[in-house]
């Protein structure tokens, strides 16, 4: 995530070092607590703004929309991108590999992809959200509407009027 250059990045780094020692507790909708570094938690714009608003860092943050399994994986992403440096080629390659493996896992399990997408959206984790929406787009790539329905377990509910409106694809292939 970090571009590793420029005044803004330097300022962010300085801020991270200053506040990086603080730990923040995130609680899943099942009541399970996860303790993370502030640098990791700041990957989420939602949490970042609550922390910056002088919010209840000590009390922790309940996340009623996220279950434990999903939260654990989302935190893995945030740890990777929040705690690790990405200045050298090797560091960046390691992050890229992490993202690639993460995507592969999301791709294999559509229910998991759904949960992580929703969590990334809710927590405003921009990098993760981009990964998940790209994964959705990749799943759709090259598929017919019927194949898309199968891939996501979507039921056909278009009315005759919708179909008339769509009048989609004439395949002369």
């Amino acid at each position: 995530m970090a571009t590793g250059s420029g005044a803004a990045a330097a300022a962010a780094d300085a801020e991270e070092k200053e506040s990086g020692s603080r730990m923040i507790t995130l609680t899943s909708n099942e009541g399970k607590a996860f303790v993370v570094t502030e640098a990791s938690a700041r990957q989420s714009a939602t949490i970042r703004s609550m922390v910056d608003d002088g919010g209840c860092v000590d009390k922790g943050f309940p996340l009623p929309n996220v279950d434990s399994k999903t939260l654990a994986r989302v935190i893995q992403y945030c740890d990777e991108h929040g705690n690790k440096e990405a200045h050298t080629v090797d560091e960046r390659a390691a992050l890229a590999k992490f993202d690639k493996d993460f995507i592969a896992e999301l791709d294999a399990d559509k229910a998991f992809l759904y949960d992580v997408t929703m969590a990334a959206n809710y927590l405003h984790i921009q990098g993760l959200f981009a990964l998940t929406t790209q994964c959705i787009a990749d799943t759709i790539k090259g598929k017919t509407p019927e194949e898309i329905r199968t891939a996501f377990g979507i039921e056909y509910d278009l009315t005759a009027q919708d179909e008339e409106e769509i009048k989609e694809e004439d395949t002369h292939a």
């Binding site: 929406t133 790209q134 959705i136 787009a137 759709i140 790539k141 090259g142 598929k143 017919t144 509407p145 898309i148 329905r149 996501f152 979507i154 039921e155 056909y156 509910d157 278009l158 769509i166 989609e168 694809e169």
Partner: peptide
């Protein structure tokens, strides 16, 4: 997600449900 899609995929997505 649609913003990341190529055109034919976009049209197909619009016909899913």
């Amino acid at each position: 997600a649609m913003e990341a899609m190529q055109l034919p995929d976009l049209v197909h997505s619009g016909a899913v449900c």
